Amino acid sequence: MIIKARVVLAVALAICASAPVTAQEQPAGRPALPDGIVSQKGDRMDRPVHRSTTADERRQTRLDRMFDELAKATTKERADRIAGHILRRMTRSGSDTVDLLMNRSAVAIQNKDYGLALDLLDGVVRLKPDFAEGWNRRATVNFLAGNYGRSIADIEQVLKREPRHWGALVGLSVILVSLDQKARAVEVMTRALEIHPYLDDTRDRRDRFKMEIDGSEA
Rank of each mutant, 00 (worst) to 15 (best):
I3S: 13
R6L: 13
V7E: 14
A12S: 14
A14R: 12
I15P: 05
C16Q: 14
A19Q: 05
T22R: 00
T22H: 03
E25K: 09
E25Y: 01
Q26Y: 09
A28N: 01
G29R: 08
A32E: 10
I37S: 01
I37N: 01
I37E: 11
I37K: 04
K41H: 14
G42D: 13
M45W: 01
D46Q: 04
R47Y: 12
A55T: 14
R58F: 04
R59W: 00
D64L: 02
D64M: 02
D64Y: 06
R65Q: 06
M66I: 04
F67H: 13
D68C: 03
E69M: 05
A71Y: 02
K72E: 05
A73E: 06
T75H: 01
K76Q: 09
E77M: 04
R78I: 03
D80M: 06
R81H: 01
R81Y: 03
I82F: 00
A83D: 03
A83L: 00
G84S: 08
H85A: 13
L87S: 09
L87Q: 10
R88Q: 15
M90W: 12
G94H: 05
D96W: 00
D96N: 10
D96L: 07
T97W: 07
V98T: 14
V98L: 04
L100D: 12
A106S: 06
V107S: 12
A108V: 00
K112M: 07
D113A: 09
G115R: 12
G115N: 11
A117S: 05
D122K: 06
D122C: 09
D122W: 02
V124L: 01
V125Q: 05
R126K: 15
R126W: 10
L127F: 04
L127D: 07
K128Y: 00
K128N: 15
P129S: 08
P129T: 04
D130Y: 02
F131H: 02
A132G: 10
G134C: 04
T140W: 07
V141I: 03
N142W: 05
N142S: 11
L144I: 06
L144R: 12
A145H: 01
A145N: 11
Y148F: 14
G149Q: 14
G149L: 12
R150S: 12
I152Y: 02
I152T: 14
A153Q: 10
A153H: 06
E156P: 03
Q157H: 10
P163Q: 09
W166K: 11
G167F: 05
G167A: 06
A168G: 05
A168R: 03
L169I: 10
V170W: 00
V170R: 10
V170S: 06
S173A: 15
V174K: 13
V174A: 12
L176T: 03
V177C: 14
V177G: 11
S178A: 15
L179D: 10
K182H: 00
K182P: 00
A183D: 12
R184H: 02
A185D: 08
A185P: 03
E187I: 04
V188E: 02
M189G: 07
R191M: 06
A192V: 08
L193N: 07
E194S: 13
I195A: 05
H196C: 07
P197I: 04
P197T: 00
Y198A: 00
D201V: 10
R205T: 15
R206Y: 01
D207G: 03
D207H: 03
R208Q: 13
R208Y: 10
R208T: 13
F209D: 03
K210S: 15
K210P: 09
D214H: 01
D214V: 03
S216L: 10
S216H: 09
E217M: 11
